[in-house]
């Protein structure tokens, strides 16, 4: 095989390969563009079902949509998949947003003095923050909110048996700062 034929074969092969690569990238751009449009419409408040085959960003957008509307039961399957996803950044964000949603609902319950439904929610929120921090130990917002949740649960030592993280005298000092505690009879 002479040099000219070799150059022709090699350049044709490179041309075919690079055209195939260009087609693949172009296809990905089209798909990404469509998914970004779906993410944007979820962000503006239009609910769309996300299938398990969708990209992680779209599933996270749907999780965020549900979590910020307190539809936690529907969120759980999405969270389970995202938390084990290879994309660590999205797993952390999903765990954190879900824990935030639970903690907000728990704080609402405490605000109207419903302690019993609040405690399991706070515990689940703590679990979520811990899992997020295991994946990303430098995530300061999760540290802060975990600290908030820790103090909430420790302030009901009669319900939370493992709430021995705080010395009792500190708990007493904090008592008056707590929401959802009886302020006395009218």
């Amino acid at each position: 095989m002479n040099a000219g034929r070799l150059i022709i074969l090699a350049s044709s092969a490179i041309l075919a390969l690079s055209l195939a690569a260009a087609a693949w990238f172009g296809g990905r751009l089209v798909v990404d563009h469509r998914d970004n449009a779906l993410i944007a419409s979820l962000a503006t408040g239009h609910d769309l079902a996300a299938s398990p085959d969708d990209p992680a960003e779209l599933r996270f957008a749907r999780l965020f949509f549900l979590a910020t509307r307190d539809r936690l039961d529907e969120t759980q399957p999405l969270l389970n998949r995202l938390a084990t996803d290879t994309d660590r950044r999205l797993a952390v964000a999903a765990l954190y947003d879900m824990a935030n949603a639970r903690l907000r609902i728990a704080i609402d319950h405490l605000g109207s003095n419903r302690i019993d439904p609040a405690v399991p929610l706070v515990r689940l929120a703590k679990e979520g923050y811990r899992r997020a921090l295991v994946l990303d130990p430098g995530f300061w917002d999760a540290k802060y909110n975990l600290d908030v949740a820790m103090r909430l649960v420790r302030d009901f030592p009669q319900i939370d048996v493992d709430g021995e993280e705080m010395p009792p005298e500190a708990a007493k000092r904090l008592w008056t700062d707590l929401p959802g505690l009886p302020k006395g009879l009218p």
Binding site: S18, A21, I39, D141, N145, V148
Partner: peptide
Amino acid sequence: ALALRPDLPPQPIPMVPAWRGLVAALTVA
């Protein structure tokens, strides 16, 4: 005492890598 840090909002899928790949593939072609 109960003010939480804000949620992490969803981000769009980054398209820059695909654009870069497309331009590189077309240049090679």
